[in-house]
C-alpha cells in the first residue's frame, strides 16, 4: 500500500534552481512541477506509508535551504478516465 502526497512549496527569491536540483536527488519524489499562483513548486511524493512520508519530509525535504513554506496534502483517492 503506497501513500501519495502533494507538497506545495513557496521558494525564496533566486532559490528555485537550487531547490529543484535537491529535489532531483530525492528518489521518493516522483514529479516536480513549476507553478504559477500561490506556490512556486509542486512535488509529488510516493512512499510506503505515512511513517515514511514523515521521514522523507523531515529528513530530506524540510532541511533544504531556499524553501520558504510548504503545504502538504495526502491523496486519499484518485479517479481517472
Amino acid at each position: 500500500m503506497t501513500v501519495k502526497a502533494l507538497i506545495f512549496c513557496k521558494i525564496f527569491h533566486s532559490s528555485t534552481k537550487r531547490v529543484v536540483e535537491q529535489f532531483n536527488q530525492i528518489s521518493e519524489i516522483r514529479k516536480v512541477f513549476s507553478l504559477t499562483g500561490d506556490y512556486d513548486i509542486l512535488c509529488e511524493v510516493q512512499v510506503e506509508n505515512t511513517e515514511m512520508l514523515y521521514k522523507v519530509f523531515s529528513e530530506k525535504i524540510d532541511p533544504i535551504e531556499g524553501i520558504a513554506k510548504t503545504n502538504t496534502h495526502v491523496i486519499m483517492k484518485s479517479w481517472e478516465k
Partner: peptide, 24 residues
Amino acid sequence: LPLDLLKIEGVSKVESLVGTYDLI
C-alpha cells in the same frame, strides 16, 4: 462531486486530498 468534475472535457484526473484543499 469528483465524478461530476471528471466528466468535464479536459479534466483527466481528480484526486481527493487531506489538507488545506479538498480536490485537485
